[in-house]
């Protein structure tokens, strides 16, 4: 069912997928040592950018290259677009050098989305690792905007060290809410850190949710997702209720070029969000 708060449904995709729109950098916010968020606004000023949580855009740094980056902003505030990016190579490095006012090409939104509507009346467990929190943030914004429609909402987040925790002040605000359970953990920390140390999968066993009435949304490095799935299933969450966001290298983002092939799927249009039972055959050694 579409609602007032649901800007676009499953069909949310670019009208002309090859058209590049010009967006200006409004702000570049450093998140961690190697991660930053770009706030973008359409150069023509008027356009709204509607998307569904979990979708991505192709961002084009003129003269350098084009890469897929998930949308990490609030789908209910479609006038600005946020993209949280980790600097790993040529394009992401160039992106980090952009100054306010610089113009970037945007194609999108592309791909499937988190099944936020399907989560209604159920407990929702969001498991994120590292930068994997970025594509999940819009889902959480959506859920919190209609909080009474959901059961318990739990966010489990794992990062490398305390300095690598993404959206830290927002996580702290979320943790202070009475209607959201937030547990964060890091893989290593120096003495004096008062939070948890240990892998994010270790949080699943004791998180407060009813496994038989839960939808799980998972995003992070593939190995982390593999072990997360095992723990969720050990708790009794069914494969049909587990959704993962997969990553493959991309070029066209519209199912033409085959760059992002994953088994019979193209991650750019059949994904990036997949239901676990549909992937089962292709996950091989995941043993799900």
């Amino acid at each position: 069912m579409r609602t007032d708060l649901d800007p676009r449904g499953a069909e949310a995709t670019a009208l002309d997928p090859m058209a590049v729109a010009s967006y200006a950098v409004r702000r570049l916010k450093g998140e961690t040592d190697d991660t930053f968020t770009l706030e973008l606004q359409p150069v023509d000023g008027a356009a709204r950018f509607s998307f569904a949580p979990g979708q991505f855009n192709m961002l084009y740094v003129f003269g350098v290259g084009e890469i897929p980056i998930s949308i990490s902003s609030d789908p209910l505030k479609p006038k600005t677009l946020w993209h949280t990016t980790r600097e790993v190579g040529t394009v992401t490095r160039a992106m980090r050098q952009l100054k306010p006012g610089a113009v970037l090409g945007v194609r999108g939104p592309f791909g499937t989305h988190w099944p936020v509507d399907e989560c209604e009346a159920k407990d929702v467990v969001i498991v994120a690792g590292g930068i994997g929190l970025a594509p999940l943030r819009p889902a959480l914004y959506r859920i919190l905007a209609q909080r009474d429609r959901y059961g318990r909402v739990v966010l489990l987040y794992g990062a490398r060290t305390p300095a690598d925790i993404l959206y830290r002040s927002e996580l702290e605000r979320w943790r202070a809410r009475f209607d959201l359970e937030v547990y964060a953990t890091v893989d290593r920390a120096m003495s004096g850190w008062r939070g948890n140390v240990g892998v994010v999968t270790g949080l699943i066993g004791r998180a407060p949710f009813d496994a038989l009435n839960t939808v799980a949304l998972v995003c992070g490095p593939e190995v982390m997702m593999r072990f997360t799935v095992q723990e969720l299933q050990r708790r009794g969450v069914r494969a049909q209720a587990i959704h993962l966001s997969m990553e493959r290298n991309m070029k066209c983002a519209v199912g033409f070029c085959g760059h992002c092939q994953f088994g019979p799927w193209f991650v750019c249009k059949d994904g990036p969000v997949f239901r676990l039972d549909r992937l089962r055959e292709w996950l091989g050694k995941w043993e799900v």
């Binding site: 790993v88 994997g132 990062a159 893989d187 240990g198 892998v199 490095p221 982390m224």
Partner: peptide, 15 residues
């Protein structure tokens, strides 16, 4: 098992 995962340093290179 948890220690092995920690040793992999999952978040170091790829998101």
């Amino acid at each position: 098992a948890a220690t092995r995962l920690q040793l992999l340093d999952l978040y170091a290179d790829r998101p």
